[in-house]
């Protein structure tokens, strides 16, 4: 969307790749996640447009830049700078054993619902989130449906005749 590729200072020192529609996609270790986002916020990224989680358990192919250790889970955050009219995306790798990452709630309160949704459907925990409860599924639901080891849960389609005389 922008012709020249603007440099994002906050991403210096981290692995980045290009992707259509965004200025850069950065791979940030989870220890630095919050501080990098804070730096981005200071750098005129006014809005967090999206947070979502991906479970890479059974992915066929997946290319990551040098030095990024692939883990099962990934949190993908899209930030938008309205004044510079660019987007950036951050991908954070999270291990299966402890899929926890810092919440962005303090920086962007608008991520509240998105993080809850990610927790609900993918089962990623956000440390510091004010109210991490299920948002879409009933409270007593077990499991996280968007994980790849969770089946789609369909029932086989049966064709049955109408009971009784017509």
């Amino acid at each position: 969307m922008t012709t020249e590729n603007p440099t994002i200072e906050a991403f210096e020192g981290f692995a980045t790749v290009a992707s259509p529609g965004v200025a850069a996609v950065a791979f940030i270790p989870r220890e630095h996640y919050k501080s990098v986002v804070a730096a981005l916020k200071a750098d005129a990224f006014e809005m967090a447009s999206d947070v979502c989680g991906v479970d890479y358990l059974i992915a066929g192919a997946r290319t990551l830049p040098e030095g990024v250790k692939p883990e099962r889970f990934e949190v993908v955050t899209s930030l938008l700078s309205m004044s510079r009219r660019i987007r950036v995306r951050i991908r954070v790798q999270l291990p299966d054993a402890d899929p926890t990452v810092d919440s962005l709630f303090d920086l962007y309160p608008g991520t509240e619902a998105m993080e809850r949704e990610t927790f609900d459907l993918v089962g990623i925990r956000f440390a510091g989130h004010p109210d991490l409860s299920r948002i879409l599924l009933p409270e007593e639901w077990e499991g996280h449906p968007l994980r790849k080891d969770y089946g789609i849960g369909g029932v086989p389609v049966q064709f049955k005749s109408t009971p009784g005389p017509r």
Partner: peptide, 12 residues
């Protein structure tokens, strides 16, 4: 509050 059980924390 967080974390109690595996399935859900807090309340809707």
């Amino acid at each position: 509050l967080w974390p109690t059980e595996e399935t859900s924390e807090g309340s809707q």
